[in-house]
């Protein structure tokens, strides 16, 4: 989590000295500070929308879900526990969960699958990204992902980028659910160590 905090500040390249941390913003937001909310939005909305859209694909639906995410941030800012992880991670976790809920609760999942096809779920790490910072993140994650076995990588990509549940993944890959769980856990532990996340 130390890594994440450093990276967050980096997103305000140039004035990282003066940038208020996301943790501080969440604290202000929990006291009803709309200006702090506006700042948090400006600094994190593209990331939230990027993540939601990766899972949902459809842009209009993704904006709806991203809006729900920010309303939930407004509602529950008082519940953020800084000792359990970084604010950015809290926000992205919430975003991923909402996106996944939407995919599983509706027709959107099926529509999406028809549109992109299962093969394209794995992210294209070579795509050109907008900023140096994102490229660095890409590079880090790409390198860490490369340390996994192909089977672990496949399972994690289906779960995180595809939004599939372990039983759906079991169906797609024709393997038992227990095996999926093991691949996800072993893979995530490996990733955690490669990315240097301490907890």
């Amino acid at each position: 989590m130390l890594e994440l905090v450093t990276t967050d500040r980096g997103s305000d390249a140039g004035n990282s000295e003066t940038a208020v941390t996301f943790e501080r913003l969440l604290d202000l937001i929990s006291r009803g500070d709309r200006e702090a909310f506006s700042e948090l939005y400006d600094r994190t909305a593209p990331r939230v929308l990027g993540l939601v859209k990766r899972v949902l694909v459809d842009h209009a639906q993704s904006e709806e879900v991203a809006q729900e995410v920010f309303l939930e941030i407004w509602r529950t800012a008082s519940r953020f526990e800084s000792q359990r992880g970084s604010a950015m991670s809290w926000i992205l976790t919430m975003s991923h969960r909402r996106a996944v809920d939407r995919v599983r609760s509706s027709q959107s999942g099926h529509d999406r699958d028809e549109r992109i096809g299962l093969r394209d779920i794995e992210p294209d790490y070579d795509e050109v990204s907008e900023t140096v910072e994102i490229r660095i993140e890409h590079e880090r994650v790409k390198r860490a992902m490369a340390q996994l076995t192909a089977l672990q990588r496949e399972a994690i990509s289906l779960a995180y980028y595809g939004g599939y549940s372990h039983s759906e993944i079991a169906g797609i890959l024709s393997i038992p659910v227990g095996t999926v769980k093991t691949r996800l856990r072993d893979g995530m532990i490996r990733l955690r160590d490669e990315l240097g996340v301490t907890s």
């Binding site: 909305a45 593209p46 990027g50 950015m88 991923h96």
Partner: peptide, 28 residues
């Protein structure tokens, strides 16, 4: 907690997408 934090890093590596102007207005 460690694995949730790690999943967050997967999220950070995704290319950001700029939301529409009206999304913020509606939200505010």
């Amino acid at each position: 907690d460690g694995l949730v934090e790690t999943a967050g890093l997967l999220g950070l590596a995704i290319t950001p997408v700029t939301p529409s102007e009206r999304m913020k207005a509606e939200l505010m």
